[in-house]
Write a protein that binds this DNA or RNA. Structure first.
Length: 917
RNA sequence: GGGCGCUUAGCUCAGUUGGUCCAGAGCGCCUGCCUUACAAGCAGGAGGUCGGCGGUUCGAAUCCGUCAGCGCCCA
């Protein structure tokens, strides 16, 4: 390709589609079980399946970029790298979208047959399901797209059924009454995740319950023990005080609880109170879960409408009275005055009634979390209902042990503790949902014998009585019940398939910490249960994407950054690089949605820089074949040896950073290398050598091509498009190492080459860089512009630059000539001292002000003297000498020598300027 | 109420087992350059008592304690 055809700036939109098509058509993302069977080493990631109807957001962008980096890296390292994509049917989320559409025509799902509604949802899924997959492709994800799975696929549905039935047969699935989150609008149970708590200002009401007759002595003793909230009513009856944020639920109270060790209330335990309005008598019980410090230390117990109270009731043997209907109105268990009244209206009525009876002790403002349905924003009601559960304790044991012994390692490490704590206190999992969209619970009830059975295949007749009057349970399973099988259901489980053998267990799971419990922990449990081992060895939990003010990006706040908009504006590589460079291990990442330009400049600028290094190579290397590096080894110039040595460091560092999920570190290492070492120093150094008659031209061309090619390979996992495009246009030596003719996606990862490490070259080129920096600094200081050529003198010779070829220094420092002199010339000029003591002098008659030079010299002397003072104090400290490692002491001695040398030079300089004392 | 995390340059963040990346990077800012790869660039520069206090140590941004502010999770 000719140079003129390469645009000055990288144009992602012109490149991305073409490159992506080439990757896909070349089948480079595919991985086969046969390749593993043939001896290939697998590396497997299964994608956290996005909701099938969802639109790509920045959290997806970050997480999938991370996974793609890992997969591309391992693929280039020669692994059979498999990244399995797919989507989740997302029960309630998807159902609600379709229900909203129905609502526009004034209907609810109940106006349709269940089957027709399901068909409607499928239609919606088929229309939108590809969208998120296409969006993943747009940011460069290299999944094996032929393996795209959906949690409602027949195969995965079979896995769901199999798992359910196995657990049922093992007695780990049971049906029971339990408090669950209930949406009175959606009319379904909700998982905890689906009931999002939002802080709200509410009230905490204090209610008085009269003590039942005959307990006056207990009340007296309680008062004597310090119970100030035990008092008397206007009619002389004793009463207690309880607090609540939901007064209407008091109609369902069946007890009052206190802490067993609370001395104030100990006398009252075993007594009873009259429940106002309801006309029932309820007991006072002791329970360890009551907090003596909260409120009055006495809590009303409403088992049917509060999960904690339900547990207390279970322990204390209290009755359970449900006072609400499924739509959130008071039911027949409530006194007649309240029946059929909505819960919030009932709240006012109850308060009014209590106030009228003098039983409302007071109200305090109270901020608390009010859980709302994440789909319709209705306030969720804890509700007692019959649901299906999985007994989790037996599943948790192996999963817990796995994390303890390191079979599953979390990164950042702190999540291990969070995981373990949750596992230790694990609760049973409510898996039934009163929805129509999802895996229907594979349980059938017999109308004849009233038996129930869980079946892998739809049954024809009752297993127990042979009757044919069967009815399937109407509920569907929680979405996560299919998700937790994902790492093996995608490979054909329960069949012992070749894929399953080749690709289970996987290696890394990357996801957001929010779903550590809902998904990650459950996958680990399912993995041990079904497969006997954990589904992955390492879990990476990335941070949250936030806006400039630190708020989580969300649709409702409108503070999101659309990854696809960024791709359209700046390219997928710019998006990826910016995210990676900004993402510390597990750290949150902030993006300013109001200034995309500034936010994504780091990525875009770097990608463009990389593009232009490639463009330079194309333009300057010429058409002759590039000799392999091995052929020019004996002919390398100092800068060649230097950059090859620096490349070694870069390779090692990138491997190390990626292995630890330090994306930011890898990005930084590569930016430092490509921009700092390669572009700014190496390219500038070899420009003259690339001319037809250039010095050691062959070596320069070979090294340039090698380093640029290696840079592309190292950067490919991070910025796949620009590197792939460069790879096709770059002049390269045809070597087996890079994989001749192959696209970059299938090229080999650079391997460290110990022979290229060259400490001497690094030291020498380092001195050279220091010298140039000093010259540039002095020129700037004295306003000798870029155009003005100067002469520089190295006092005491240029011994440190023996291997520097002629002309390089002159060109990079823009000097007309370099003189070696025994002593500083007598004329006016500017001075500097290198760290090895070499003195630099630039004659600048008429430009340099002697007074200014004197000031500079004095400043330097003071700076070095301060430094020296510190070093000398250290070296005079016998404890430092005896306790610090020898290498550290040695380093201090070297610093001391260097400082002393520089100090001598500066003092002499000062004297010669007439400023000495 | 219990647990966890964060606080380093104007902004966003690095800083691995304490000592050569030890005070850094990117963006922004200032100065000078359209030097035939790149102005999305190059060169030079300003800017931080590493949240406060106390401790451990020969030595602390780094380890310990404590206080303050911010955030998250569980209940």
């Amino acid at each position: 390709m000719s140079a003129s055809s390469l645009p000055k700036t990288f144009e992602p939109s012109a490149v991305e589609d073409r490159v992506r098509r080439m990757w896909e058509e070349g089948g480079h993302f595919g991985a086969s079980a046969a390749a593993v069977k043939g001896g290939g080493e697998p590396y497997v990631i299964v994608i956290p399946p996005p909701n099938v109807t969802s639109v790509l957001h920045m959290g997806h962008g970050l997480n999938n970029t991370i996974q793609d980096v890992l997969i591309r890296w391992q693929r280039m390292r020669g692994k059979v790298a498999l990244w399995v994509p797919g989507t989740d049917h997302a029960g309630i989320a998807t159902q609600n979208i379709v229900e909203r559409q129905l609502a526009r025509t004034g209907r609810t799902r109940h106006d349709l047959e269940r089957r027709d509604f399901e068909r409607l949802v499928w239609k919606h899924v088929e229309a939108t399901g590809d969208r998120i997959i296409g969006q993943l492709k747009a940011i460069g994800c290299s999944c094996d797209w032929d393996r795209t799975r959906f949690t409602l696929d027949p195969g995965l549905s079979r896995a769901v059924r199999e798992m359910f039935v196995r657990l049922y047969e093992d007695g780990l699935v049971y049906r029971g009454e339990y408090i669950i989150n209930w949406c009175p609008r959606c009319l379904t149970a909700l998982s905890n995740e689906e009931a999002e708590g939002a802080e709200a200002e509410g009230s905490l009401w204090r209610l008085r319950y009269p003590l039942a007759a005959g307990h006056d002595r207990a009340a007296h003793r309680s008062r004597a023990a310090g119970a100030q909230t035990v008092g008397t009513l206007a009619d002389g009856r004793w009463c207690i005080t309880v607090s609540t944020t939901r007064p209407e639920t008091m109609l369902g109270d069946t007890g009052v609880a206190v802490h067993p060790d609370d001395p104030r209330y100990a006398p009252l335990v075993g007594t009873e109170v009259e429940l106002p309005l309801a006309g029932r008598t309820i007991p006072i019980v002791a329970d360890g879960h009551v907090s003596p410090d909260f409120g009055t230390g006495m809590v009303k117990v409403t088992p049917a409408h509060d999960p904690n109270d339900f547990e207390i009731a279970g322990r204390a043997g209290l009755d359970v009275v449900n006072v609400l209907t499924e739509t959130g109105a008071m039911n027949a268990n409530a006194p007649e005055a309240f029946r059929g009244v909505d819960r919030f209206v009932a709240r006012r009525l109850v308060l009014d009634a209590l106030r009228a009876e003098g039983l409302l002790a007071g109200t305090d403002p109270h901020v608390h979390a009010v859980p709302r349905c994440y789909r319709c924003d209705t306030v969720v009601e804890p509700r007692l209902s019959e649901q299906w559960f999985v007994r989790m304790q037996p599943l948790a044991e192996a999963a817990l042990e796995g994390a303890r012994e390191g079979a599953v390692a979390f990164s950042p490490d702190r999540w291990t503790k969070v995981y373990a704590r949750w596992m230790e206190g694990i609760r049973d999992w409510c898996i039934s949902r009163q929805l129509w969209w999802g895996h229907r619970i594979p349980v059938w009830y017999c109308r004849d014998c009233k038996g129930a059975m869980a079946c892998r295949e739809n049954p024809e007749a009752c297993e127990l009585c042979g009757g044919g009057a069967l009815e399937q349970d109407p509920d569907v399973l929680d979405t996560w019940f299919s998700s937790w099988l994902w790492p093996f259901s995608v490979f054909g489980w329960p069949d012992d398939s070749p894929d399953l053998r080749a690709f289970y267990p996987g290696h890394v799971l990357s996801t957001a910490p929010e779903i550590l419990f809902f998904w990650v922990a459950r996958m680990i449990m399912a993995g041990y249960r079904a497969m006997g081992e954990a589904p992955f060895a390492r879990v990476y939990l990335h941070g949250t994407v936030r806006d400039a003010r630190g708020r989580k990006m969300s649709k409702s706040l409108g503070n999101g950054v659309d990854p696809l908009e960024v791709v359209a504006l700046y390219g997928a590589d710019a998006l990826r690089f910016t995210l990676l460079a900004g993402a510390g291990v597990g750290a949150d990442i902030r993006l300013d949605h109001e200034d995309l330009e500034a936010t994504f400049a780091p990525g875009r600028n770097f990608v463009n820089k990389l593009w232009n290094t490639g463009r330079f190579a194309v333009m300057s290397v010429g058409d002759d074949p590039i000799p392999p590096l091995a052929d020019v080894r004996s002919d390398l110039a100092l800068e060649d040896r230097w950059i090859l040595s620096r490349l070694q460091r870069a390779i090692r560092r990138v491997d190390c950073e990626l292995d630890a999920f330090r994306m930011q570190g890898a990005a930084e290492a590569l930016r430092d290398f490509v921009r700092g070492d390669f572009a700014d120093w190496y390219l500038e150094s070899v420009k003259d050598r690339l001319r037809p008659d250039g010095y050691r031209r062959a070596a320069a061309r070979s090294v340039l091509a090698h380093v640029l090619g290696s840079s592309c390979r190292l950067l490919h996992p991070l910025v796949p498009f620009v590197t792939e495009e460069l790879w096709t246009v770059l002049p390269r030596a045809e070597t087996a190492e890079a994989g001749e003719g192959r696209p970059l996606v299938a090229a080999r990862w650079p391997t460290p080459d110990p022979d290229s490490v060259d400490a001497e070259a690094e030291a020498e080129f380092g001195r050279f860089k220091e010298l140039i920096g000093l010259v540039r600094g002095l020129r700037k200081e004295y306003g000798v512009g870029e155009g003005g050529r100067v002469v520089i003198h190295l006092v005491g010779g240029a011994s440190g630059f023996a291997n520097l070829r002629g002309g390089l220094l002159e060109r990079l420092a823009r000097i007309s000539s370099l003189e070696s002199t025994a002593a500083p010339p007598g004329e006016a000029g500017a001075s500097a001292v290198l760290s090895d003591g070499t003195e630099l002098f630039i004659p600048l008659t008429g430009v340099v002000d002697v007074a200014r030079e004197v000031d500079r010299a004095r400043g330097e002397i003071e700076r070095i003297e301060n430094l020296l003072e510190g070093i000398e104090a250290k070296l005079a400290n016998s404890k430092f000498l005896t306790r610090a490692p020898a290498a550290v002491v040695e380093r201090e001695r070297e610093k001391l020598a260097s400082c002393k040398l520089q100090l001598t030079k500066w003092k002499r300089k000062l004297t010669s300027l007439g400023g000495g004392e």
